[in-house]
Design a protein around this nucleic acid. Structure first.
Lengths: 223, 223
DNA sequence: TGGGGGTAAACGTCGGACCTATCGGCGAGG
DNA sequence: CCTCGCCGATAGGTCCGACGTTTACCCCCA
């Protein structure tokens, strides 16, 4: 195994074992390189790799730190990976989202507060009757993001965030080409919000399923 | 933005845009560095980062290649990230798995072949009446892995693979400490297989839910 | 035709030199 | 006494050149 790979493993081990905690500062590159027994160049490759996946946070002129290591931070790196997938696999991502989103929405129905419900209402109201497609999709993303946050599960929340991104383009496309798609989206959002306000998990789940299935079916039909 | 980060973005752009296809070989480091306008050292950091997430495959003495970019390959990098999560978040992962696994099992019930059913049967039979905990958990993982593969969704399959790993330790622990856990697991596996053999998605889904919920409840109770 | 050796190409590692952003102390000024 | 701004120490950012190590592949010989 290459020394750089060893360094990656060693740094990982230091974090997992607890020798390094979230937020801790690493020794400066020269010292850490000496400590791990490799050159600064090779160590830098290891650090760069770990910073790409948000394990380390490198601050020029300051030092290198361990990130908070929260699921939201680490899973954020997933979006980088997802960007490489071809359109052909978008349908697979959407299928997974169709599984997770209804579940998250149902979970949210049991935990959502009055304040959060009101916030969602204002979010939907903020959009006019005939919004631009880009605004609608942005509003769509935010709507579902907030609901996922109410699920109380940060892993679920991050996964949905990641899975939603690659389907954004597809949704914009749909809004532009499919007759009535915009109105349908607005109506379904309102229905989901009503279900949440009623604290009705099953209705919320069903509307979320219908909502995503409509995108999925459309996408499957045009691919 | 640092030149290395630019290089990462440029290489990513080359792949996403189609200038580089899956399996393609990159120019040698010296040439690519010149092409992108940076030094070989900095370029190597970019390449190392991309190889950590399985975008590039560096073969010493040969060259650097773009991987197949299949979901299974790219999502495999997720396990590296998941390794950094603390035990406290294992429950969140398990919750997500409890959402995905039943769905995958239900999907599998509709697509599974006679041959695959027979294979699962042999897998379960391969374990004795009183297996070692480690063998049981390994068998458990393989059982669910094969079922997920039958779902036909590689993204779903990879995600489950990743989510299952961090809960492995917990399951071993449970097998060692909870009375009757081993027998219960074996019985539930058999029930899931029966449901699959009957091509009954809803029964399969329910058994999968029960199966994972039992682990989840136990884990929640001991944490 | 098949195997073995050799060579060239490519990645791996190292050390050092120099640039640059950042932080924090210190002193001048209000 | 407090505040603002300068400045030096520190740490990461980049580059260069050299050499080691592995691998693929071609050529030669049996």
């Amino acid at each position: 195994m290459a020394v750089t790979d060893e360094a990656i493993e060693k740094i990982k081990a230091m974090i997992v074992s607890g020798a390094l905690h979230a937020g801790d500062r690493l020794p400066k590159e020269a010292d850490l390189a000496a400590e791990l027994g490799l050159s600064r160049s090779s160590l830098r490759e290891a650090v760069r790799a770990l910073s790409l996946v948000n394990i380390l946070d490198v601050r020029r002129g300051d030092g290198t730190y361990v990130t908070s290591l929260e699921p939201a931070v680490l899973l954020e790196a997933l979006s980088f990976i997802v960007d490489f997938h071809k359109d052909a696999t978008v349908l697979e991502f959407l299928q997974v989202r169709r599984i997770l989103e209804p579940a998250a929405t149902a979970m949210a129905a049991k935990r959502i507060t009055e304040e959060q419900i009101a916030g969602l209402g204002r979010l939907l109201d903020g959009l006019g009757k005939q919004p631009e497609v880009e605004d609608l999709v942005a509003n769509d993303l935010e709507f579902h993001r907030r609901i996922a946050a109410c699920s109380g599960n940060s892993v679920l929340c991050s996964l949905l965030e990641t899975l939603s991104a690659p389907t954004t383009r597809a949704r914009v496309w749909r809004g532009l080409t499919q007759e009535g798609a915009k109105e349908r989206t607005l109506d379904e959002h309102r229905a989901i919000l009503d279900a949440l306000a009623s604290r009705d998990p099953e209705v919320a789940r069903s509307w979320a399923t219908v909502h995503i299935a409509s995108v999925e079916q459309w996408l499957a039909s045009v691919l």
